[in-house]
Simulated assay, not measured.
Amino acid sequence: MPKKRTPNETWYKNIRPIIWKRDNGRCVNCGMKVSLKNSHIDHIVSGLKSDNKFRNLRTLCVRCHVLRLDINHRGMIQSAIRKNLIPADWRNFVWEE
């Protein structure tokens, strides 16, 4: 049975602000200050094994989120290249824990 998604109201009004504040409004990978609106709250473990427990969530900037080594993030690559968020040689900048 597929997992149920957290309702948008709960995610945007409760979970995102808590994680962003916990991480001091900074990307936990590169340390860049990022607004709540522009932050990406990332699942450390993603996919079917994922959950929304706070220990599994972290704040990332858009660039670090796109460049994170996670097969579930591949759909973001082309859009990020078009928007000049990442370079065409993005593979040189991929990171993992």
Score class of each variant (00 low, 15 high):
20 W>D: 00
73 H>T: 02
22 R>M: 01
66 V>W: 02
40 H>C: 06
11 W>R: 10
90 W>H: 14
87 P>T: 13
30 C>E: 08
76 M>A: 09
21 K>R: 15
1 M>V: 06
83 K>E: 03
68 R>I: 03
96 E>T: 07
8 N>L: 04
86 I>P: 13
10 T>P: 12
30 C>H: 13
18 I>S: 09
8 N>V: 09
96 E>Y: 04
57 L>V: 10
58 R>A: 06
23 D>C: 08
36 L>K: 09
45 V>M: 10
78 Q>F: 03
93 F>V: 08
62 V>N: 09
34 V>E: 00
80 A>K: 05
19 I>F: 07
41 I>S: 02
36 L>M: 13
25 G>V: 05
57 L>W: 11
39 S>E: 04
12 Y>G: 02
37 K>I: 04
33 K>E: 05
56 N>T: 08
92 N>R: 15
83 K>M: 00
65 H>G: 05
22 R>I: 08
56 N>F: 05
93 F>D: 10
26 R>C: 15
39 S>I: 02
57 L>D: 04
79 S>L: 11
92 N>Q: 15
24 N>G: 06
4 K>S: 05
42 D>T: 07
97 E>K: 01
87 P>R: 10
19 I>V: 15
71 I>E: 14
55 R>D: 03
69 L>V: 01
47 G>H: 13
94 V>P: 01
15 I>W: 06
86 I>Y: 11
27 C>Y: 09
63 R>V: 15
42 D>P: 07
32 M>R: 11
26 R>E: 14
21 K>I: 09
81 I>Q: 03
89 D>G: 00
49 K>Q: 11
85 L>T: 10
53 K>A: 07
26 R>P: 01
82 R>H: 08
63 R>Y: 15
3 K>V: 03
16 R>M: 04
40 H>R: 12
64 C>G: 10
23 D>V: 11
59 T>K: 07
93 F>Q: 12
58 R>T: 03
86 I>T: 13
34 V>W: 02
84 N>C: 11
85 L>E: 14
78 Q>G: 00
9 E>G: 02
57 L>Q: 07
30 C>N: 07
68 R>K: 15
44 I>Y: 13
96 E>C: 11
93 F>K: 12
60 L>E: 06
18 I>R: 15
36 L>V: 10
73 H>G: 01
30 C>R: 09
18 I>T: 13
97 E>F: 00
87 P>S: 12
29 N>A: 03
34 V>L: 00
83 K>H: 11
14 N>T: 12
23 D>M: 11
59 T>G: 09
69 L>Q: 07
13 K>P: 02
2 P>C: 07
46 S>C: 01
94 V>R: 14
78 Q>H: 08
28 V>W: 05
11 W>I: 12
